[in-house]
Simulated scan of single mutants.
Amino acid sequence: MIRLLANWILSAVALLIVSRVVTGFHVDTLGTALIAALVFGLLNATVGLLLKLVTLPLTIITLGIFLLVVNAFVLELASNFVPGFHIRSFGAAFWGAAVLALLQMLFRFLIQETEEV
């Protein structure tokens, strides 16, 4: 349960960092980021999973790069449901998805390092 809560908080922090780095990607507050992370996670587990299955051949051909397009679409979809979370264009969503993936990879690495100690 604590691990799930930590992942949720780190996802919200990652969204805040992305909003500072990517132009056109905006998150108002930490509370908004927490709600956006929850909505993005739920949409990614449902709609995102379905899209990833449907686009699997394209994902294989592009060596996984197309997953950024799917994640960008899910991010834009989430921004439609969360007030205070705005993505101006698909380009901003794409670069936001790329930076978000890198940050989440970094956070997983750091969490794994602290668990081994």
Rank of each mutant, 00 (worst) to 15 (best):
V82R: 12
T62P: 02
L75Y: 13
T29D: 03
V21C: 01
N71T: 11
A33T: 09
A98L: 15
A37I: 04
F109S: 14
Q104W: 13
R88W: 07
V54Q: 11
F25P: 03
S19W: 01
L58K: 03
T55N: 04
L16N: 04
L56C: 05
A37K: 02
A92N: 11
A36S: 13
T55E: 03
L58W: 08
M1R: 14
N7Q: 06
I35F: 02
R3V: 03
G84N: 13
K52W: 05
V69T: 09
I2G: 12
I65Y: 08
R3P: 02
L42N: 02
L53K: 13
S11M: 06
T29C: 07
H26W: 05
I35S: 00
G41D: 00
A78M: 09
S11W: 08
A33N: 07
V54K: 09
L51I: 10
L16H: 00
E115G: 04
E113F: 01
L77W: 10
A92G: 14
L5N: 00
A97K: 14
T46D: 03
D28F: 09
G91F: 02
V18A: 07
F40A: 12
F25I: 04
F94V: 13
Q112V: 07
A6Q: 03
L50M: 14
V69D: 13
I87K: 15
G84E: 15
T59Y: 02
V22T: 06
L16K: 12
L4C: 02
L34A: 01
I65F: 12
I17P: 07
Q112K: 15
V117G: 10
L4G: 03
S89W: 03
M1H: 10
V99S: 08
V18G: 01
Q104G: 11
F81Y: 14
L43R: 00
P83W: 14
V70C: 11
F81C: 13
V39Q: 03
F107Q: 10
S79L: 10
A37G: 07
I65S: 14
T23P: 00
S79V: 01
L75F: 13
L67G: 04
A12E: 05
T29F: 00
Q104K: 09
I87Q: 14
L106A: 15
T23D: 15
L103C: 09
A14S: 14
M1E: 11
Q104E: 15
L5F: 02
L63G: 09
I2R: 05
W8H: 11
W8Y: 08
L53P: 05
L49C: 02
L77G: 12
F40L: 13
G96T: 02
A98P: 02
L15V: 05
L5T: 06
W95K: 08
N7R: 09
V27E: 00
L102I: 15
L106H: 01
A37L: 04
T23R: 12
G84V: 08
S79M: 14
F94A: 06
L34H: 05
L63C: 09
T114I: 08
L51W: 12
L75D: 06
N44D: 12
T62L: 09
W8V: 11
A93R: 10
I9H: 02
V13G: 04
L53C: 06
L50N: 10
A72W: 07
F85W: 05
G31C: 04
V22S: 01
T29S: 14
L103P: 08
V13Q: 04
L34Q: 03
I35D: 02
W95A: 07
V99D: 05
P83L: 13
L49E: 04
I61D: 00
A72M: 14
I65C: 10
S11D: 07
Q112N: 15
L68D: 03
